[in-house]
């Protein structure tokens, strides 16, 4: 009896594990794939950027159009990310703590930017605000420029990066429920006090995580921004657009120099993200075990 009882799980374990050869083959394929498609391009960016030496690399970075593109990218992120953090937090709060009509619709709407091609969302803004749109004449009369100007770029970026914060917060806040908020209210706390002393501290790491991803996307967004920007050098060019222009002009070192900054941003984001996951994994939504 006992030999059967012990033997059975052993056999099962052996049956489920692959032979050494198959295991090595699978790991090898995975490593090869990662090297070819992820690591190699990243290395190539830096190799190309530094091909003509450090001096040329920095010359390309401090060139006026490049500086302008970097500034614009930072400005757009500085507006879009905080706005999306506040709006995303409000949306997540409303969805997870209250029952209301059209809640499901709101959840679907939040996901919309993920399912729509960025180019399409850019085009929508062109249709809404360009000179030939029905809003165009009114805007022109008031001297407001949206398309082919900074406001259009900000709008398109907000649209594309909206889901990051909300999607990170909704599952976490739903799993936390509203019992702590009810407790705070029963102890006499006002709604604002409850939000700032109970709700917000409970989601701070998840919020930071969402903001991090939102920022990476805001700085790297190409499609939607490309449609509304108009590619005016020194005025409406963001870093990703500037990379394209330089590349099309066969200025490979310049293109890769700017690209290396974006790649560096990606690396920083990745490290920060991993640190957050390692340290506060339990407080992040996608790690919650149901």
């Amino acid at each position: 009896m006992s030999s059967v009882a012990i033997g059975a799980p052993l056999r099962a374990a052996r049956g489920m594990s692959e032979s050494k050869l198959v295991r090595r083959l699978l790991i090898g394929v995975a490593l090869l794939f990662l090297t070819l498609f992820l690591l190699l391009p990243l290395v190539m960016v830096f190799v190309e950027a530094f091909r003509k030496g450090l001096g040329v690399y920095f010359e390309n970075l401090v060139e006026p159009d490049a500086i302008s593109a970097i500034k614009l990218t930072l400005l757009v992120a500085a507006i879009a990310v905080p706005l999306n953090a506040v709006i995303g937090l409000s949306a997540a709060w409303a969805i997870s703590k209250f029952e209301f009509r059209g809640k499901q619709l709101l959840i679907s709407l939040i996901d919309l930017p993920f399912s729509v091609s960025p180019v399409v969302s850019g085009l929508v803004y062109v249709l809404l605000f360009s000179a030939h749109s029905w809003l165009g004449p009114t805007l022109k009369a008031h001297g407001i420029e949206i398309i082919f100007a900074v406001p259009g770029i900000v709008l398109a970026t907000i649209f594309v990066t909206f889901p990051f914060v909300a999607r990170e917060l909704i599952p976490l806040m739903q799993s936390q429920g509203s019992a702590e908020e009810a407790a705070a209210l029963s102890l006499g706390a006002s709604g604002w006090r409850t939000f700032f002393t109970v709700t917000l501290p409970n989601v701070k790491w998840a919020l930071l995580y969402g903001v991090l991803l939102c920022n990476a996307r805001a700085m790297g967004e190409f499609g939607a921004v490309s449609v509304v920007s108009g590619h005016i050098r020194g005025a409406t060019n963001t870093m990703p657009l500037h990379v394209e222009i330089l590349y099309n002009e066969y200025n490979f070192v310049g293109a890769f120099a700017i690209a290396s900054l974006l790649a560096f941003l990606a690396l920083v984001t990745l490290v920060a993200k991993s640190l957050l996951e390692a340290r506060y994994g339990e407080e992040l939504a996608h790690r919650i075990k149901h």
């Binding site: 702590e180 407790a183 029963s186 409970n202």
Partner: peptide, 12 residues
């Protein structure tokens, strides 16, 4: 004074 079923203590 309300004591909740799962206590609802402020976790942080």
């Amino acid at each position: 004074g309300f004591v909740f079923q799962h206590y609802a203590l402020f976790r942080h």
